[in-house]
């Protein structure tokens, strides 16, 4: 464990808590993409299948359970409890355009052709593009609530911190996972224009609005 990975995990946990708080306090999931949240739940489900079989540490097990529970809790809030506030008219990104190619790629490019490894690879590839419906929804509505923009900033920062973690582990532990690194870079690059808007607007106290 290193400081980059720890702060990355904390940023990830913070993002998930911010989203749950936003939905719970405003009693609304307006501006939140249900499709992205569905894909995140799929990412955690396919990545953490070894939760029972492969104990790494109490921290690892605890965080995995928190991530799985919170992702399904978010789906519950969005699609059951506050379903009336789900903005399906603006959440129109075609998920199959992401899931199908990602599934195909995980069969073609992986470290080992075994079920657990292919599912892990699928989850890594899917996570790198899972935010697209959310970014697409913001581009359609032209704006995002401030707390939603904080959620996205924390979520985007987590994988950027993981890239620093991989640099650290490469030099100090000789650890290198090309699939995770490439997907992590793609994932972080997708946030770049959002990061620019967030830093130039939200940090100045303005609301996050996209240039018309």
């Amino acid at each position: 464990m290193n400081v980059f990975r720890l702060t990355g995990d904390i940023a990830h946990l913070l993002a998930i808590i911010l989203l749950l708080m936003k939905i719970w306090k405003t009693r609304s999931c307006a501006g939140v993409s249900g499709k992205s949240q569905m894909m995140f739940a799929l990412v955690f489900t396919t990545r953490y299948l070894d939760l029972i079989t492969n104990f790494i540490s109490l921290y690892n097990t605890t965080m995995k359970m928190i991530f799985i529970a919170s992702s399904y809790g978010t789906l519950y809030l969005m699609f059951l409890k506050f379903r009336a506030t789900y903005d399906s008219n603006h959440d129109t990104f075609r998920m199959e355009f992401l899931v199908v190619p990602v599934a195909g790629l995980s069969f073609l490019v992986n470290h080992d052709f075994s079920p657990l490894e292919i599912l892990w690879t699928f989850s890594i590839y899917l996570e790198s593009v899972a935010i697209l419906p959310q970014l697409f929804m913001i581009s359609k509505t032209g704006e995002a609530e401030t707390i939603t923009s904080h959620y996205l900033f924390a979520l985007g920062s987590y994988r950027a911190l993981y890239i620093l973690n991989w640099v650290y582990r490469f030099y100090f532990e000789g650890f290198f996972d090309l699939i995770a690194v490439v997907a992590g870079c793609v994932q972080t690059v997708l946030y770049c224009d959002f990061f620019y808007l967030y830093i130039t607007k939200v940090w100045k106290g303005k609301k996050l609005t996209l240039p018309a």
């Binding site: 990975r5 690892n60 052709f113 490894e117 892990w120 993981y162 973690n165 650890f175 996972d177 995770a180």
Partner: peptide, 10 residues
């Protein structure tokens, strides 16, 4: 195939 890197990350 080379052994997959250990999966100790979240």
């Amino acid at each position: 195939r080379v052994n997959p890197p250990q999966k100790d990350e979240l």
